[in-house]
Every structure is written in structure tokens, then in C-alpha cells.
Design a protein around this nucleic acid. Sequence first.
DNA 1: ATCATGTGTATAGCGTAACGTTACACGCTA
DNA 2: TAGCGTGTAACGTTACGCTATACACATGAT
Lengths: 96, 96
Amino acid sequence: MTAMHNPPHPGEVLREWLDGITVTDAAARLGVTRVALSRVLNGAAGISPDMDLRLSKALNTTPGSWYAMQSNYDMWQAQRRFRAKVQPITPAATAG
Amino acid sequence: MTAMHNPPHPGEVLREWLDGITVTDAAARLGVTRVALSRVLNGAAGISPDMDLRLSKALNTTPGSWYAMQSNYDMWQAQRRFRAKVQPITPAATAG
DNA sequence: ATCATGTGTATAGCGTAACGTTACACGCTA
DNA sequence: TAGCGTGTAACGTTACGCTATACACATGAT
């Protein structure tokens, strides 16, 4: 339950990996638009499954790791917004 | 790298958790439409972050676990579709 | 000062996807 | 037959990732 502590958006982390290369160049290597990568780096867009695979290939990271980071971030954000009331679904509740 | 082996869509897994309760009743407890839950159970829709939180509350599971399952499934599907060519981004490539 | 380059960002358009609403069809059972 | 549970199609809404285009700003070289 003490899973994550305010994770940064993956774009921040990605920025460190792209330290010595320009956004324009990195985008070209990834096969995406400069705008698309810029939006990720600045948190205006998340990392899609497709983008994850491009990153894992270009940066030689484990496939799914970037998207997993994104998922954690998305869940974190969703928790803050979540207000819905939910009724329990348990064997007890089912039996009753 | 030998991470996952053809994961089932989370709806399949979820179905087992809702064994003794009707779809209509479960949907009502979750606070979503019967149609929405049915789509998830039949693989016509994925588990969104919002749906994950509803499930984790109702079923008393760890928040994020259902969405993580969905993410794995999505990555798996993305890998099969992925065909894009990507240029490496490494210190060597950066320096060159 | 002028120009090229890198960058951030706004806009519009496209495709995908989750969700609610409504409605129809099928199967089962009282 | 009537009622319930279920699957699903159609439609509109909303959100989001991506491309293409364009504008503005900063920096460095000519």
C-alpha cells in the first residue's frame, strides 16, 4: 500500500537519458515528430505503448519500463481525482 | 526480458472475481453502467485508471494492480504491431 | 545586424478509445 | 407470457496521442 510516492512524470526522467542529444535529433532517431517528443518531455503528453517501444529500442531499456512508469504516474493522478463512491463486492456482499 | 507470456485480457481475470454476482449488480456497486462492465469483461474495452480504482475499492485489491495488468496486456499487443525502425540513442551515437 | 539552429507552444485535423444512453435480441425461468 | 440477466450495436461526448504547420524566442556564427 506504501507503493509510490508522488512519481515524477516520465518526461522528466526521459530528459536525463537524452542529456547529450538535441530534442530534434532524438525525435528523428525515434521516428517521431519533434513536437511529439517535446510534448512528452514537458509533460503535455504521456508515454504511449508505441513510444515506449521506440524508447526501449533506442535507449536499450527493457520494453514496458517506460510505459510502466507512465502507468504509475497515471494511477497516481487518477487517485487524486477519484471521488466516486463504490459498494463492496465480496463473498459476503454477494451472499447477502 | 522473458517477462510475460501472452497475458489474457484483464476482463477474463476479472470475470473470476465476479463469480457469484451478476454483471448488472456488480456494475451498480462499481457505479458504472452495465454496458461498460460488460465491455470490459468481454474484452471490448480495457481497464481504465478510474475503473481500476473502482475495482480495487470494491474487491479490496491493491490500487493499480488491475491497471498494471491492463498495461502489460497493452504492451503485449503493441509489440505485435510494432514495425517502426528506430535509430539508437547512445553516448556513442551522441558523441558521433 | 542577419541568418541558421534548437526549442516551446498554439492550432487544426485525424484516429483511437472509454463511457453513458438507448434500444434490440437472445436465453432462461417463474 | 412476463421478467430478468446478458451481449451488443449505434450514437454522441470527451479525452488524448500524433502529424503538420506556424509563430515566437533564444543563442551562436557570419
